[in-house]
Computed example of a mutant assay.
Amino acid sequence: MNTTIYDNPDHELLRDQVARFLEREVEPHAAAWEEAGMVPRDVLRRMGQAGLLGLMFEGEHGGGDADALTNLVFAEALSQSTFAGFIITVLVHTDMAGPHLHHAGNAAQKAKYLKKVTAGEMITAVGITEPGAGSDVAGIRTTARKDGNEWVLNGTKMFITNGVHADLYFVAAKTGSARHDMTMFIVEKGTPGFSVGRALHKTGWLSSDTAELVFDNVRIPEESLLGEQGKGFYSVMKNFQTERIALAAMAVGHCTQALKLTLDHVRQRQAFGATLWDKQTIRQRLSMLDAKTRAARQFMYHCAWSVTQGKDIVQEVSMLKALTGELVNEVVQTCQQFHGGMGFIRETAIERLWRDARVLAIGGGATEVMLEEVAKRY
Results as ranks from 00 to 15, higher is better:
residue 77 A to F: 08
residue 6 Y to D: 14
residue 297 R to A: 03
residue 182 M to I: 11
residue 167 D to T: 02
residue 94 T to L: 13
residue 324 T to K: 07
residue 184 M to A: 10
residue 209 D to Q: 12
residue 230 G to H: 01
residue 335 C to V: 00
residue 220 I to T: 06
residue 344 F to R: 07
residue 249 A to L: 05
residue 86 F to R: 05
residue 40 P to C: 05
residue 343 G to C: 07
residue 46 R to G: 00
residue 278 D to Q: 12
residue 68 A to W: 11
residue 279 K to W: 15
residue 215 F to S: 03
residue 216 D to M: 10
residue 234 Y to V: 05
residue 209 D to M: 12
residue 140 I to P: 01
residue 302 H to V: 04
residue 187 V to Y: 01
residue 207 S to N: 13
residue 70 T to C: 10
residue 41 R to K: 14
residue 84 A to C: 03
residue 5 I to A: 14
residue 200 L to P: 01
residue 155 G to M: 03
residue 254 H to M: 15
residue 207 S to C: 13
residue 187 V to K: 00
residue 254 H to K: 15
residue 161 T to G: 05
residue 198 R to K: 14
residue 96 M to D: 04
residue 165 H to L: 03
residue 126 V to C: 07
residue 180 H to S: 09
residue 258 A to H: 01
residue 26 V to E: 03
residue 84 A to S: 04
residue 248 A to D: 03
residue 375 A to E: 11
residue 337 Q to P: 03
residue 168 L to R: 05
residue 309 Q to D: 02
residue 189 K to C: 05
residue 340 G to S: 10
residue 150 E to F: 00
residue 129 T to N: 05
residue 223 E to K: 08
residue 337 Q to M: 05
residue 128 I to L: 02
residue 233 F to A: 02
residue 111 A to K: 15
residue 360 L to A: 14
residue 241 Q to D: 11
residue 192 P to W: 08
residue 255 C to N: 15
residue 303 C to K: 09
residue 210 T to H: 12
residue 125 A to Q: 04
residue 156 T to E: 12
residue 374 V to I: 13
residue 63 G to F: 06
residue 151 W to K: 01
residue 278 D to R: 08
residue 64 G to E: 07
residue 282 I to R: 11
residue 369 V to K: 08
residue 171 V to W: 03
residue 290 D to N: 04
residue 131 P to F: 06
residue 2 N to W: 08
residue 242 T to A: 07
residue 204 G to P: 10
residue 199 A to H: 07
residue 157 K to G: 01
residue 35 E to Q: 09
residue 188 E to L: 13
residue 169 Y to Q: 02
residue 28 P to G: 11
residue 154 N to K: 05
residue 288 M to G: 05
residue 317 V to Q: 08
residue 344 F to A: 11
residue 46 R to Q: 09
residue 257 Q to L: 08
residue 190 G to K: 09
residue 308 T to H: 04
residue 251 A to N: 10
residue 325 G to C: 15
residue 294 R to W: 15
residue 269 R to I: 06
residue 183 T to I: 02
residue 272 F to V: 14
residue 258 A to V: 04
residue 273 G to T: 14
residue 164 V to D: 05
residue 53 L to D: 00
residue 303 C to L: 06
residue 153 L to D: 00
residue 112 K to F: 15
residue 110 K to R: 14
residue 95 D to L: 07
residue 127 G to Q: 02
residue 346 R to Y: 12
residue 194 F to Q: 00
residue 360 L to K: 07
residue 99 P to G: 10
residue 155 G to T: 01
residue 152 V to Y: 02
residue 369 V to I: 09
residue 96 M to W: 02
residue 116 K to S: 02
residue 5 I to W: 12
residue 264 D to K: 15
residue 236 V to K: 01
residue 133 A to D: 03
residue 217 N to V: 01
residue 58 E to V: 11
residue 288 M to K: 13
residue 301 Y to A: 00
residue 173 A to Y: 02
residue 64 G to I: 05
residue 288 M to N: 11
residue 326 E to Y: 13
residue 159 F to R: 03
residue 359 V to I: 15
residue 217 N to S: 03
residue 86 F to K: 06
residue 315 Q to Y: 08
residue 362 I to L: 11
residue 27 E to V: 09
